[in-house]
């Protein structure tokens, strides 16, 4: 889990993930689009791959990188958990307020 977030905490890796939203891409295209050199991009892709955020798709002579749902689903679960913290907290506040209102009416 931490590996997933660490992988995404680097701005260029996040940009790669965002770029791949539009579809699979070759290393060269990613490098050109983001203005990075190929060895840098390969290194980032490798980190993203280990974190299950991208996967490789071999197509004819080309290796294309595409998003891997596995890592992205982990993130989704985590975001959901963060939302639950506030939902839980404010549900409790709701109870406190109901209690205060009741006492005032007595």
């Amino acid at each position: 889990m931490i590996e997933t977030f660490t992988a995404l905490s680097e701005p260029n890796r996040l940009r790669i993930v965002e770029l791949l939203r539009d579809g699979p891409q070759a290393v060269g295209v990613i490098a050109d689009t983001l203005g990075l050199n190929q060895p840098q991009v390969s290194k980032h892709l490798n980190t993203l791959k280990k974190a299950h955020l991208v996967e490789v798709e071999a197509k004819a002579q080309q290796r294309l990188y595409r998003l891997d749902m596995q890592g992205l689903q982990l993130i989704d679960q985590w975001l959901d958990r963060y939302r639950r913290i506030w939902t839980d907290r404010l549900d409790q506040l709701d109870d406190v307020i109901a209690d205060m209102t009741r006492k005032q009416e007595e």
Binding site: M1, I2, F5, T6, L8, W78, L79
Partner: peptide
């Protein structure tokens, strides 16, 4: 929020996910 050491760009990822 609950787990230390993790970093994420919330809105970008929220949208992405």
């Amino acid at each position: 929020g609950m787990e230390k050491g993790m970093r994420i760009t919330m809105d970008q990822l929220d949208e992405l996910v």
